[in-house]
Amino acid sequence: MSNLWFLYLFFAALLIFIGLYCLLTMRNLIKLFIAVEVISKGVSLAIVATGAVKNNILLAQSLAITYIVVEVALVATALALIINIYKKNKSLDVRLLSKLKG
């Protein structure tokens, strides 16, 4: 069972790494939120896999569902913000946001 847990958490860490790499290096705002989504996939995989391995799948499922709801609210707000930024700057380049400095 420990090997199975290792396997799932290994891939969850990999997903979180891919998302963090994109967050740190990319400039397109939509790409950055795709990276946030990838990280959240890694986290929900870790939650559900740990619950399944530790025989706590019901609790893990309820936590995963809560997490998904929070994720949707985050993405909806963030994408609305991106559309507003695009209308203002006519670009999705994250470097242009430094112009917001007073």
């Binding site: 400039r27 397109n28 705002l29 939509i30 939120f33 795709i34 989504e37 996939k41 998904i68 709801v69 994720e71 949707v72 993405v75 909806a76 994408l79 991106i82 559309i83 695009y86 006519k90 670009s91 999705l92 380049d93």
Partner: peptide, 23 residues
Amino acid sequence: VVAGLITVLFILTIALTKKGDEV
């Protein structure tokens, strides 16, 4: 929710920000 709704939201945002690919 994630594969359906969030994908629709992403595609909607991409359609509304057509020049996004130019970054």
